[in-house]
Design a protein around this nucleic acid. Structure first.
Lengths: 242, 242
DNA sequence: CGATGCATTGATATCGGTCAAAGATGGTGG
DNA sequence: CCACCATCTTTGACCGATATCAATGCATCG
């Protein structure tokens, strides 16, 4: 364990798959035991952020990772060109805080008010050293994230804006599939600009793509942040045309 | 460990950072102990592939992961559109073979003749269960790969073909920095088409981009597979203009 | 009810994709 | 040793999609 900070190699780790530190259990096959959860909560502290609050900046010394309890955040990097790349959006049960060489690689900022658990890196690695099952959970989660990152790369390979947006819609729809789908509308807390930075498009293109989805009768925005999916199978078809 | 195959979540895992199963030690801080290396070699078998040979197909049951001893491979997926996405190129000391739900997600094919170690998943997970340090190594490596995948996504966000190609050049140059840089030329075993599939460009665009790099005096191909970098700092500048 | 972001819509230009053809390269076999 | 072939690569012309620039609409909040 020469450099414990090194395992924390990315700002976009999301462990949605695991009911990490969460009281609710999901159908997910990977679950922490009560003992593990207790051990984690013992080293954790709570953090609260209001909308637009910064959890940490890229380049800052990384001494902890975070588990989202509630709210939505974005993990992004500002590139030299002025472009901003959103690596991922973080939802409840996602993890973030990974770093390279002891420094966070991405900036994480709250999109809505959020609460998180803060897990000091030193204590966490100590914990994992003695609990190889717990560590295995992390391995699974990181691997899962790796897969997501690859999908992101594939998504960015698409030529058509509408297809990219459709993928984003599917992503966020799945994310909220568990939540009460009140009157069938999906809550999209992020701005067009955030979406654009995630999809690698200009915000104008995102806007035009939403218009296209509407024109095709696939989905439409009731309000800025409320999306209604009209034709799931049509959307799915569009997404598959990678 | 309900589903050991699940930790193997991607076809693009590369553990270049670790002298995995390799006799040579690097300056890398993360090293396996002789005991760990011995344990790994005990469960490993050797595999040989000639150029263009397929290591495994996407979708095939994943029962092992592989460590590249020598040679170059590509890990890719054929998308419904007919497009092919190269997730990563694999070099000596890289790992591959990760899967989702017990099935490989990517196809891996040899670009040059290769030799690899084959590590049966069952034995490996068993090993990791008892050796949390070894598992930690894997965690570090996967995390490292995650970071690479993010960089790939950022790369794909670029608009200009020359910039993307420059990034690829830097990637492969760094990869071979250790090798004997015979007369300063870099060996590029993959075809333009492979490069295109990795960069998300058409092969014609790759060709035009090479012409542009040459025109700008940054780099040029002596032969198809031998690249000469003429202006490292100029290249670096181009790469930074993300 | 301003005012300030945020979002949409429009016009234009640029860059890469696509189609097409010609040019290298390397290996094979006569 | 050379000719031939398959494969890979380069180059050109054209088109289409998105970025960019610019202006207008629309909320949300003080």
């Amino acid at each position: 364990m020469k450099q414990p900070a090194d395992f924390a190699a990315d700002g976009m780790l999301s462990f949605r798959a695991a009911p990490f530190l969460s009281p609710t259990l999901t159908a997910d096959p990977v679950v922490l035991t009560p003992r593990q959860r207790e051990a984690l909560t013992r080293i954790a502290t709570r953090v609260r952020l209001k909308s637009r609050g910064i959890l940490y900046q890229a380049g800052a010394p990384a001494d902890a990772i975070f588990a989202v309890i509630e709210g939505v955040l974005k993990s992004y990097r500002d590139l030299p060109s002025g472009r901003r790349m959103v690596a991922t959006f973080l939802f409840a049960r996602d993890l973030c805080g990974l770093a390279v060489k002891g420094r966070y690689v991405n900036t994480v900022r709250a999109i809505t008010p959020v609460t998180l658990y803060r897990l000091p890196l030193a204590a966490l690695t100590e914990l994992m050293k003695g609990d190889s099952e717990l560590q295995f959970h992390f391995l699974v989660k990181v691997t899962h994230e790796l897969r997501e990152a690859q999908r992101h790369a594939i998504l960015m390979n698409r030529r058509d804006a509408a297809g990219r947006l459709a993928s984003f819609v599917a992503l966020i729809a799945e994310q909220q599939s568990g939540a009460k789908s009140e009157h069938g509308s999906i809550h999209v807390p992020m701005t067009r600009s955030d979406i654009a930075d995630f999809l690698g498009l200009s915000l104008e293109s995102v806007s035009r793509a939403t218009a296209e989805l509407k024109a095709q009768g696939l989905a439409r925005f009731d309000t800025r942040h409320h999306l209604r999916i009209l034709d799931p199978s049509g959307l799915a078809r569009l997404i598959c045309n990678v």
